[in-house]
Design a protein around this nucleic acid. Sequence first.
DNA 1: GAGCACTGC
Length: 826
Amino acid sequence: MPPSTTRDLNELRLRSRQQYLEKRETEQLALLKAQVDEEQEELRANPNLSEKERAEFARNRTTLRLAQERLNISDHLDGYNLPGADSVEDKTAVLNKRHRDDKYVSEFQQFEIEQTRAAQGWTGKSSEQVREDDYELVFDSQAFDWNSDALRRIDPEKQQLEQRLNAAEQKAKSIEDVRKSLPVYQYRDQLLAAIEEHPVIVLIGETGSGKTTQISQFCLEAGLNRGKKIMVTQPRRVAAMSVAARVAEERGEQLGRTVGYRVRFDEKISTSASNPTMLEYVTDGLALQLILSSPSLDEYGILLVDEAHERAINSDILLAIAKDLVKHRPDFKVIVSSATVNAQAFSSYMHDCPIFSVPGRSFKIESFFSSQPEANYLSAAASVIFQIHISQELPGDILVFLTGEEEIVSLAETITETAKKLGGKVPEMIVRPLYASLPASEQQKVFEPTPTKARKVILATNIAETSLTIDGCKYVVDSGYSKENFYEPKTGMESLVVTPISRASAQQRAGRAGRVGPGKCFRLYTRWSFYNELEAEPVPEIQRANVTATVLKLSSLGIRDLLHFDWFSPPSTSAIIKALEDLYSLGALNELGVLTTIGRKMADIPVSPELARVILAADEFGCVEEVLTIVAMLQESGSLWLRPRDKKMYASAAHRRFVSTEGGDFLTLLNVFNAWTESEFDLNWCAENYLQPKVLNRVRDVRDQLVKLCDRVEVPLSSNPSDHVKIRKSFCRGFFAKAARLSRGGDSYRTIHGSNSVFLHPSSVLTEVRPKICVYYELVLTSKEYMRNCFPVDDPQWLLEAAPHAYKKEDLEKLGWDKKMGKTKG
DNA sequence: GAGCACTGC
């Protein structure tokens, strides 16, 4: 739990109350009004009220006021404080004025002056201190007119020549021009000299600087790689593939010759001796796996870690390894590429290497803040959306950042209704939700072009922050929150908490308004909160996530003292110790903390250490095929089940066909996969059964890969589809520590280790059966502590057999196990 | 009674 628990809880309490209001407005409003009246009475009558109570009462009053105003939303009574606007009438006037204002239009040209200034600034920042100016500058000074003639550097002679060239050559030429027009091009020679001189450099450049596509090409063209390959890592598959394609095109080559990519399940590279791929775009996860088998990366001369500012575990670990590698390989070059202004931390970590700054080329984005804190950002968002819709010219879509599916669906309903009420008085509004668990076909609708007389409003989670880019958004509305995953090593519980975003994320979100032209960002929080309450950067993933797999990977590289490992941002000591303990009890490390044969094999299998251990154990039980399917399904099961709101009953009925109460969710997943296989991977079958074909296809890919890997870790395939007990016993070998027993009341469970109170997830097939003991795949804290994906343990002896070192006989006897009770099932 | 986002030879 983050330290600010009490504040968060208050926050959550307040907000959950407000969401409730959204749903049953009238009824709840009456109740709240009664409560507030009562509290006001109490406030008058009782002088001894505590500060806390007074604050609580005040909050309720505010809630009531906002809720009442919310009802009048079509009158646009509350909402944004725009500069120079005190009343509603003023606001509308200001909003209308803004896009007619001469000054506003001229800002378009104003960039050029500023750009000239920015282009001369080839500076390394030396201060970590946050100054307001830094943030204002991110957009203001580097804003750029994409179509500016100044940038194109049109040479009349060259232009004439171009006209005589044929179509293909013209294309090649224009690509060359575009390359030369990129801000990074002006620094080509200086950059190359610096890379030549220093083993490591940090490169900062905002969106549109061309760093991702150009730097690696510069190195290749200049021969800095000295005959070795260049590896560029990307955090996402699509990025690795599309950037590689783009670079190949710029070079007028086919993808997979000199330039190629490697991602899981797919690669386009040439290994021919005469013309091998020299420039490889690779996902950072795959890069790590490559290092496991070739720790000194001998084939590579240059490693470019892109998007390092995102601070994903994989890129953090890559930096740690690269940092060490340059000490042993004088011919090895590392370039750390980041979008943040705050590059000093990267430089200090990477042997105080020099920092390069390349100006970006995004459009001007104006940011507005709330004048006072919004008690309910959903109603504030609705209000702002309509203010924009009514006052701002078309075209210009709106992108709204919210925290999750539930919020998105409820706001979509609210604004669709309000738009209907407004009818013909305003232009048509097309509302599109966007979140990861939304079926692909629905997600695709976000990209449909907006009709000329309409406005698209996209309600998105932070999927739209980095993963998906939607062009045509001129306005961003930022709630200031997102859901973040925190892992608590002591209990092994993950929690998905609504957390305030960081300033860096806020800038990233705002930037989404300036992809095709100047834009505006409306922040549903105050300027003061932005500078004083938001953290500068998000907490690095490695400090939020389960690090067991990472510790295993590092151990497999021969790194022994992980507590004193040179982490970029160290995980907590307790997190590292817990990971080491878990790896020891899984048999991956011995008493001295040294990798065992089993551990070596586990590191080679790209699944969590527990699942890897299960695969190895399945060999002894003779059910490898079944276990591989379940392992692949468990990893992907999150978005497997489709439950459209209007067809919930049908979906549930369809899903019930696969249920195995004896084998729990694990065997249910096996049934789904086998049935899909029998249907010959039929799309219609997926639709009929309300399952995501995208997920099942991925499961098949993962499973196929695991089958191949089994050969390498010397696990022969075996199958025993009818013996569910053996399958479950295999899983006990990896998940013995994740067991819970039914409480006396029969309502909740208690974990056997730690005795924490936990509940079966409502989606579990075991909710009706409630076995005495069950093993769970994961523990998540959402509205309750839920065990997600469970299977029953018929006899506690299974746990003792699976981990004699982790359980004592007495412990299990203490469970009060009664053989007779154990046999009563379902 | 209910799920942010990525990734893996």
